[in-house]
Design a protein around this nucleic acid. Sequence first.
DNA 1: TCACATTTGTCCGTATGTATC
DNA 2: AGATACATACGGACAAATGTG
Lengths: 253, 253
Amino acid sequence: MDADNNLFSPIKNRRAFEEVSLKIKALIFDGILKPGDKLPSETDLARQFNVGRQTIREALRILELSGFITVHKGGSGGPIIKDTILNTISALFLDAFRMKKMSLMELTVARLEIERVVLNYVMDSIDDSDIKSLQESVNRAKKKIENNIIATEENLQFHKLLAKASKNHVFVLIVETIMAAVADFLSRIRPDVETSNNVVEYHEQILRAIVEKKREKALNLLEEHLLEVRRRLQPFIDQEERAGGKEGDKQKG
Amino acid sequence: MDADNNLFSPIKNRRAFEEVSLKIKALIFDGILKPGDKLPSETDLARQFNVGRQTIREALRILELSGFITVHKGGSGGPIIKDTILNTISALFLDAFRMKKMSLMELTVARLEIERVVLNYVMDSIDDSDIKSLQESVNRAKKKIENNIIATEENLQFHKLLAKASKNHVFVLIVETIMAAVADFLSRIRPDVETSNNVVEYHEQILRAIVEKKREKALNLLEEHLLEVRRRLQPFIDQEERAGGKEGDKQKG
DNA sequence: TCACATTTGTCCGTATGTATC
DNA sequence: AGATACATACGGACAAATGTG
């Protein structure tokens, strides 16, 4: 898109902290540095790369935000390879959603379509361990509902576990990302226990259909479930529409 | 997921540069700072936030990497709000793909499913301007092929333009993200002109079917097209499999 | 074209907080 | 509890880049 990943890219225009972060990233990509490994301290890195400590710090900030490392302070602390890159993608997606680059309407539409596709794969690739985690998640949710507590966390987890059962990491990432945005939204509107209960009941039925290998039934239940969710969200979608929700698309580059 | 977005979260445990970046982010979310606006210089920001310049710089690195600002040096330079957050998500996804958290196999599977769904929406929401850009993209590609040049860029663009025609920003983001990974892969294997030509011909047929409002035909063509792409990629998928492609899933937290 | 002011980029010295041993 | 090691943060200084007059 931009003049970015093309030939004839800048030769010397990179800043020092960018070079440092790229070099460390390359070590990770090449498997020389693995998750759990500890990087030298900032002072040591500065010496080894022959740059100042501030340069190292900015490089570490980049790697930290990108999800390649975490930094621990105190004795025997320092930066360690942590590989939480998938989380950071969800975080950025959430930012984009918050900036109204994407509307609630678009999100729910995409969610329905993608989860339908994912479920189709789940029917073929689910194993006992997946079923067990799903069952446990549903049970936890039911217990909460019995105690009159909303089970948002468990309900979102159900969909993430479902994606995991598809055994496709791309689906996992997409669903987790969408769920992060959904969670952010739900945390603001605080659904009532009755709504939460409705969700749990659907999840239970979907899980049963999956276990019984009834593909069509499972797909229909999921569709019903997500349409019901959408129906309950409709007031907020309308509200967003009225407020002139999606405006972006202004600047060009 | 993590202890992150809950009540009673840490009060003072955040690092100074995090607070600064969050404060600036909040100004952007609230619309007080808009794309194109110029932030004060680093020295001014340091004065205003009552921190050192190093702290400001680390905060700016975060905002830069997250896609909220870009930084220009020199007279009348400085940080400006740039809102390219969607691009940075693709970049991170690419990192994840490079780290073998996702295999080429998983990527092509997900791509086929998602593009099928997207096309279904495109059939309903496409307008003349979309058709025009798609046509132009195809024409550019054909011209390149005539001159015996591979048209990878244009071919990838076709799919991105298709996603845009769905008028759903979530789909756009997902497809652009997947295409960034595909582009990264293709840049390494360098397809021949014949393959590139095959792709262009499919795109032309798909576009014609869309214009003629033949939904089933368009969907079938897309499926054929992507299966053909997958067939040509199969050797590399096998190779990845043999090399023990996806290993990840080791560390826990 | 040529200085000049502005601003980022970078380095250094130093001080402080904090976690580990 | 004390020593150590480390990140965190501040302030001063200079170089490099870039737009302006």
